[in-house]
Amino acid sequence: MPVFSLKVNSSTREVNVDSGTSLLWVLREHLGLTGTKYSCGVGQCGSCTIHVEGSPMRACTLAVETVAKGQKITTIEGLSEKGDHPVQKAWAAHQVPQCGYCQSGQIMQAAALLEKNPKPGREEILQYMNGNLCRCGTYMRIYKAIESASKEL
């Protein structure tokens, strides 16, 4: 089995897996970074959202070899040092999570949005977040939290 070297959350990690293995399984089961979640495995739900070179990506659709060329991978564990990214703070202020399972993905997607455009309008927020499902129905609060994080930026 080949060894892949991944730059995750500012450290370099080596994994020994078949090529073609999804980055999601590598992160979760091989590297123990379980904040990134599996829910659909086919790019439909956003639970596995991470940043690759700052852009939001679905880890479940990325084969490990495509991100082993020195790209910077950030997971929820690496979003901020103390869990105090403006988006995370807004999440607490608005009491967004219910079951919480989708929330790593939501937060990573929202953080990427605000990185790209710190002052998004309503339509832009709704469209940008449209690929992230939340079965508990926390969307109203997600929306409000993104708006208020945007005000902090």
């Binding site: 979640k37 997971t75 929820i76 564990e77 869990g83 009491q95 999570p97």
Partner: peptide
């Protein structure tokens, strides 16, 4: 008064069974 589980559900540390790893575990 907020929920006690918001922080761990905003930083990826909340443990769902999906996240549990035990020694010698197989799939």
């Amino acid at each position: 008064i907020g929920r006690v589980d918001v922080v761990e559900k905003s930083n990826g540390s909340a443990q769902f069974s999906m996240d549990i790893q035990v020694p010698d575990m197989v799939y």
